[in-house]
Structure formats: structure tokens, C-alpha cells
Design a protein around this nucleic acid. Sequence first.
DNA 1: TCAATAAATGCACTTCTGTTGCACTATTAA
DNA 2: TTAATAGTGCAACAGAAGTGCATTTATTGA
Lengths: 138, 138
Amino acid sequence: MTEIEKTLENHQVRPTAMRILIYKYLAEKKIAVALTDIEYAFAKAERTTLYRTLKTFEEKKIVHQIDDGTGISKYALCESGCNCEIEQDLHLHFHCNNCNETVCLTEHKIPQIKVPDGFVSENVNLVVKGICDKCSGQ
Amino acid sequence: MTEIEKTLENHQVRPTAMRILIYKYLAEKKIAVALTDIEYAFAKAERTTLYRTLKTFEEKKIVHQIDDGTGISKYALCESGCNCEIEQDLHLHFHCNNCNETVCLTEHKIPQIKVPDGFVSENVNLVVKGICDKCSGQ
DNA sequence: TCAATAAATGCACTTCTGTTGCACTATTAA
DNA sequence: TTAATAGTGCAACAGAAGTGCATTTATTGA
């Protein structure tokens, strides 16, 4: 049994061929990917299957969904630096206005945000937009 | 000439009847509104007109677009507390998971966010989700 | 003032993302 | 081996966003 299969089973997800492939794909891409991206990569697979696989992964805390402000949901593997399972996903995301890619800055935690009296904060989403390291030319 | 007409002209937007109405509507609602909301409010008007009016307003810095994570673009008037015109729109937004409304917390500025070397930050979007003052029952 | 021009609006589509229902297939457990 | 369950594929739909074009309204300049 491979590493990936173990990981999936640890999250109560049956390691089907499709799921292993999708997991691999997510692991290879360092960036957050949209459903459409996976669709292109797996031209043979059904969009519905990919869609539901992502939903399953999300539910089982294998990936986290990212809203980077483009209006398209993206997903990225929860890795060592990501503690989605225990606490809120509090790292920030960076969206590059040039290459249009979104990356998790797992080591950059979101600072404490104060809200006015009467407001109860349950979750924080922070997306920084700009130029990523690859595009800034260094 | 009314106050609203002046405001529109100050932003190089011709104050047509439709635009004045939409501006009024936005001013009355304290919360960020989606295109659909306006559509309901102005059942007689065409969606395209509303859509393009919002785009015009956005371009001319009369409103700012808000991505609150619901996947639906919302818009709110840039008011005194909002300095979209001069600098980045750095106030945060609060989305209530109960009533589903999104408000600008104009007085709450986004703290300085550090990004790794090579990344250039141009803009920051911060959305706090939780329960708003009206729904938290106080 | 009135025609020429430009801006705004209305209507009909299209596209894209996300989502669901249902049938079929593969897998698991009794 | 068979019944139950989980996963996959196909088809279709919903909602938001966006575009092209014709028509109306407003502005400008002769």
C-alpha cells in the first residue's frame, strides 16, 4: 500500500484509482487548483466525479477550499503546515495578478483581527494579491 | 441639482434617472448588495443596465466590489470612511453566516501583512465570517 | 433649432461554474 | 454468492456573469 493510499484511508476515504490520481495531481501542483484545472488534466474523467472527489476530500479534511477572489473555488492539499483538522485554517493565500496562480503561504498565519462589539468572528479569510516570486523576476 | 447628482458628476458619471435611483438604493442599504438584490428592488429595470451601472460605478470609484466568499459579487458605496480613491481599500468586511449580510467595517483597517521575499503585495482582501451584531442578539 | 454624434438602456443570447438526479458499476460485508 | 453500499458516468439544470446589437435618450455643434 502506497503512502497516498495510507493517507486517504487515514481520512476515512476509500483509495480508489481516481482519487489516488487526483491526490497525486494536487500533490504535484504546489498551487491551489480549480475544478477546471483538474478537468483539463484528466480529460477522460467526468467533471462530476472530480467535483465530488474534491467535495469528499474537503469534507474529510484532505484539502481545503480557497476563495481567492477570482470567483472560482480552488483547492489545495492540507499539508504538514496546515492545521485545518484541528483549528481554523488560518494561513493566508497569495493570488498573483500576473500568472493568476494562487499559493498557500502556510507559514504565514493570519494576525488576530478585532471586530466591533456584538460581532462574533468564526472564520477569517485573507487573500493578498500582487506579484508572486516567480513573476517578480527573482 | 441634488447632492447625489453632484456626487455622480464629481466622479465623471452622468446622473441619469436610473443611476440616481441605484445610488439612492445603495445609500439606503447599509450593507453590501449583490446584483440580484438590486434586480429585486428594481423589478422594472433590465439586469444588464443594473450590471453595467455597477461596473461604471466601480470604475469611477463610486462603489467598491466586495468578495465575501459567497461566490457572489457584492457592492457597497465608498463613503467618507472609505478611501478607495486615494489608496487601496484596506478596511475589512464582515459576512454574517446567519443573516447572510455583508457589511463594511470601514473603521477597522487591515493590519500590515508580511509576505515572503519575492512576493509583492498590491492589495489585501480580508473577510471575517461569523455572527453580526444584529444576529448575535445584543 | 435641428441634425449628427455619443452615451445609456433594453433584449436576447452565450458561457462558465457549480450542482443534482438517476442509472450503472465496482467494492465490501454477511 | 448475494445483498448492501460506495463510487462513477451521463444528462440536465441553476445562477451569475458577460457580450452583441438594436433602440432610445441625451449632448453637442453647425
